[in-house]
Amino acid sequence: MDDASAEPLLERVRQRGGYAARDEAARAVRGVLEVLGAHLVGDDRTDLARLLPRQCGPFLVDAPPASEPLTPAGFIDAVAARDDVAVRDARRAVTAVLATVAEVADDALLRRILTQLPPGHAGLFGRTDPV
């Protein structure tokens, strides 16, 4: 993510996740958005992609569809496996990125996204169920 339009998003993720470097935040954004994109369908993922910096859109919309829904713990495990990191590092990435996404999305879009995910994911977005 080299475009300056991504800087505010990366900086929020960097601060929220406690990352020392911008490239760490960029890796977190990519990994989490690819896993999220695999679990969203239709307009919800394209609507979210339009709200994020243009470089983030392909992470969401080009992700191959997931074969089955993931629990919140499964979501974190999927990010850990995708990025070959420890579960605690994946949890940090997931909460930093999804809380930042929740700031970008309006409540209606966030509600639609959460209805596509199994119960319990709101906490990963820094919200309580229901939105």
Rank of each mutant, 00 (worst) to 15 (best):
L33E: 05
E34G: 00
L36T: 03
G37D: 06
G37Q: 06
A38T: 00
A38I: 03
A38Y: 00
V41D: 12
D43T: 12
R45M: 12
T46Q: 11
T46S: 15
T46K: 11
D47F: 10
L48M: 09
A49F: 09
R50N: 15
R50Q: 15
R50M: 15
L52E: 06
P53L: 10
R54E: 15
R54L: 13
Q55L: 13
C56Y: 11
C56F: 14
G57H: 05
G57A: 15
G57F: 13
P58W: 05
L60A: 06
L60F: 11
L60T: 05
L60K: 03
V61I: 13
D62L: 14
D62G: 05
P64I: 11
P64E: 15
A66Y: 02
A66D: 03
E68D: 02
A73N: 02
A73S: 10
F75W: 00
F75H: 00
F75T: 03
F75Y: 03
I76A: 12
I76H: 05
D77N: 07
D77C: 02
D77M: 06
D77L: 10
A78H: 03
A78E: 01
A78W: 03
A78K: 00
A78P: 01
A80R: 01
A81N: 04
A81I: 04
R82Q: 10
R82E: 05
D84C: 05
D84V: 09
D84M: 08
D84F: 07
A86Q: 04
V87M: 10
V87I: 05
V87E: 06
R88D: 13
A90I: 10
A90F: 10
A90S: 09
A90K: 02
R92Y: 08
R92D: 04
A93H: 03
A93S: 12
A93T: 02
V94F: 04
V94A: 01
T95H: 12
A96E: 03
A96S: 05
V97C: 06
V97E: 04
V97P: 01
L98Y: 04
L98Q: 05
L98A: 07
L98W: 02
L98C: 12
A99M: 12
A99G: 15
T100G: 04
A102E: 01
E103M: 10
E103A: 13
V104S: 06
A105R: 02
A105Q: 00
D106L: 14
D107I: 14
